[in-house]
C-alpha cells in the first residue's frame, strides 16, 4: 500500500460519502444520474465476487463491503425511497447504459488476464468503471446546473482516478513485474473522461463563478 493508493481509496470513499450525505440529508438526488449509480453497483458486484473466497487484507475487505453497501444503497434511495425518488430527473437521465454494458462484456471476454469466470468479470468491471461516469457527465451537460455536491462528487471521483495513476507509476518503479495493462489502459481512458470536467470545475472555482459546462 502506498500513499497514492491510500489517498485514492479515501478520495473514492469521500465521493461516495458526499453523495450519500447529499441524498440522505436533503432528501434529494437532483442532478445525479441513476444510470451511473447503477453502473457503479454492477462494477462493484462484478469486481468483488472474490470478496469471501480470497482474503487480501482487512482493509481490502472492509472497503469492498463499504463500496458495495454504499453503491447499492444509493441506487435503492433513488429508485425506492418515497421522497428521494420524486427528485430524480428521469427525463434528462436517458443515456441508454446497456450500450456501455454490452461492449464492456464482449471486450472482457476477448481481453482478460485469464479466461476464467472471475477474471472475465474482473476485466468487465474494469472496463465498465472506465465508462460508468458517462451518463452522469451527459446529464450534467443537459441540465447545465451543477449544484455543489454533484460537482464535488464528480471532482472527487476524478481525483481518485488521478491518484490511482500515480499509484501505478509508483508501484511500477518499486515492484518488479508490476504490470497490469488492463487496469492501466482502462484507468487512463477513465481519467481522460474527467479531464474536461476538471478544466471547467477548476476554472469556475478560480473565477469564483457558478460551474457551467458548455452546451
Amino acid at each position: 500500500m502506498n500513499v497514492f493508493r491510500l489517498a485514492g481509496d479515501m478520495t473514492h470513499l469521500l465521493s461516495v460519502v458526499v453523495l450519500l450525505l447529499k441524498i440522505h440529508t436533503i432528501k434529494s438526488c437532483a442532478g445525479i444520474s441513476l444510470k451511473t449509480q447503477e453502473l457503479y453497483a454492477v462494477v462493484f458486484a462484478a469486481r468483488y465476487l472474490d470478496l469471501f473466497v480470497h482474503f487480501v487484507s482487512l482493509y481490502n475487505t472492509v472497503m469492498k463491503l463499504v463500496f458495495l453497501a454504499s453503491s447499492f444503497s444509493i441506487v435503492w434511495y433513488m429508485k425506492r425511497h418515497k421522497i428521494v425518488r420524486r427528485t430524480y430527473d428521469k427525463d434528462h437521465d436517458t443515456f441508454r447504459h446497456y450500450v456501455l454494458v454490452l461492449p464492456c462484456l464482449l471486450l472482457a471476454l476477448l481481453i482478460n488476464e485469464k479466461f476464467t469466470f472471475r477474471e472475465v468479470m474482473w476485466a468487465f468491471s474494469i472496463y465498465l468503471e472506465a465508462v460508468a461516469i458517462f451518463p452522469q457527465l451527459v446529464l450534467l451537460q443537459r441540465t447545465r446546473n451543477i449544484d455543489n455536491l454533484t460537482g464535488q462528487y464528480v471532482f472527487f471521483l476524478g481525483a481518485y482516478r488521478v491518484l490511482y495513476i500515480l499509484n501505478w507509476i509508483y508501484r511500477y518503479f518499486t515492484e518488479p513485474h508490476f504490470v497490469h495493462w488492463i487496469s492501466w489502459v482502462a484507468g487512463i481512458v477513465q481519467t481522460l473522461l474527467y479531464a474536461d470536467f476538471f478544466y471547467y470545475y477548476i476554472m469556475s472555482w478560480k473565477n469564483n463563478v457558478k460551474l457551467e459546462l458548455p452546451a
Binding site: 487480501v56 463500496f67 499509484n167
Partner: peptide, 10 residues
Amino acid sequence: PAEEKKHDEL
C-alpha cells in the same frame, strides 16, 4: 507455481 495473480487493488 507462480503466486496466483492477486487483484489487491480496490
